[in-house]
Write a protein that binds this DNA or RNA. Structure first.
Lengths: 145, 145
DNA sequence: ATAAACCCTAAACCTAACTTTATGTCAAGG
DNA sequence: CCTTGACATAAAGTTAGGTTTAGGGTTTAT
């Protein structure tokens, strides 16, 4: 069992954030002893899940819904699985999107490297993909799909 | 040359957003004719770059800095390249982070699939990585690094 | 010539996810 | 006893990135 201060250190999360999560209903049945929060193994695991779902782009109010399902027991397994499937699809799309952004950045790094050598962009401005090095052309074409 | 409404349609961005970007200084020397904005090829390319930099996690005020460098000409090529190198490193880290989140989600999907078959979590709760299917174990271990 | 469909600005408003502030309780140590 | 430190609450404040509103001007089709 942990106090809020211990959990704060454990996860490097401000105490105020943990209290905020609690206020938002992210720990549906956390115990208290004379008003003081008791972070149990259950709550610690909840925080791990919260971190994951947050990184997957989910909002607090939807994470709350998930936590409520957890508190309701086995009858909500299907909903919980459904949720994770949706997050999975979302994150897969997000990674693909980020890969395209990365390709644009790779192209731009090359572009400004060349611009520095040339001193201006007169050669670069009208450049065609077929005049770029192989690696750069691939990045360029993926970025512009 | 485009009006704000045409650019809005072209990029599927609200007119209000384009005006907001302008107010934030993202089009440093956009022309106007009797008060009306003239989106030129330069501004259209700027919007493409804005979209990319935004997706790479950059804030508006830093994008503004970049746009000012662009308006200053060839002497700022090194700064611009530096910026893109930094964004590239950031996005690479971001993709790795997302891959870990994805692995956690893959694990959770499997977990709840099993929980549904079992009807409870008594078998799952104390499960060790070596008792998981290969694909799941890999995801689990990457997610928990 | 008048209504619709554009364009403009300034300023107020919005939302999520926190953070800060003001106030108070309680236990332990010097 | 009294100060320090950890806990608590409620409510106000913050930030980014817009959006909405209120008030006007201009152009175009009927």
């Amino acid at each position: 069992m942990y106090t809020i201060g211990q959990v704060s250190q454990l996860f490097e999360l401000p105490v105020s954030t943990l209290r905020y999560y609690d206020k938002e209903g992210l720990f549906p049945d956390m115990k208290r002893v004379s008003g003081i929060r008791q972070f149990d193994e259950k709550e610690v695991e909840a925080i791990r899940v919260i971190e994951c779902l947050k990184k997957s782009g989910m909002e607090i109010k939807d994470i709350k819904q998930f936590m409520e399902w957890c508190a309701q027991g086995p009858q909500t397994y299907p909903q919980r699985r459904e949720l994770f499937l949706k997050r999975k699809a979302y994150v897969e799309a997000e990674i693909e999107r980020m890969q395209q952004v990365l390709d644009m950045l790779i192209f731009k790094c090359w572009y400004y490297g060349e611009a520095m050598r040339d001193g201006d962009e007169t050669r670069l401005q009208p450049i065609k993909p077929e005049d770029m090095p192989e690696r750069i052309r691939q990045a360029y074409e993926n970025a512009h799909r």
